[in-house]
């Protein structure tokens, strides 16, 4: 496939990345080159091959259902860009009027 500027803008939106108009073209060209490189995988016959997500044979690990201490609230909030007492503060999520 050929990666287009529209694809790149869509991907940027999905990835929550802001991309300036001037950057769209060069970003598209660079990503297209990488996508072209990885497309050599098309040459490998893989029918019936089980996809491998992990090198280990991993299973869900369960522990006894005992209450254990977790990260202290103040410690968890210690890197918050903005906080409001016990909460992380963020810009308005709804009810915003302009």
């Amino acid at each position: 496939m050929q990666l287009s500027s529209a694809d790149v803008l869509k991907v940027a939106k999905l990835a929550r990345l802001h991309i300036s108009e001037a950057d769209v073209q060069p970003t598209t060209a660079q990503l297209a080159r990488i996508v072209e490189m990885v497309q050599q995988l098309d040459n490998v016959p893989t029918e019936g091959i089980e996809p491998m997500a992990h090198a280990l044979d991993v299973h869900s690990v369960l522990r006894p259902d005992h209450r254990l201490p977790s990260l202290d609230r103040q410690a968890a909030l210690s890197n918050a860009p903005q906080r409001d007492q016990e909460c992380f503060r963020v810009p308005p999520v709804m009810g915003h009027d302009h």
């Binding site: 990885v38 995988l41 098309d42 490998v44 893989t46 091959i49 089980e50 996809p51 491998m52 997500a53 090198a55």
Partner: peptide
């Protein structure tokens, strides 16, 4: 086309 395919080739490499 990409992720699943790569995971399959990963198994072949393994």
């Amino acid at each position: 086309a990409y992720y699943r395919k790569a995971q399959q080739v990963r198994r072949l490499i393994f």
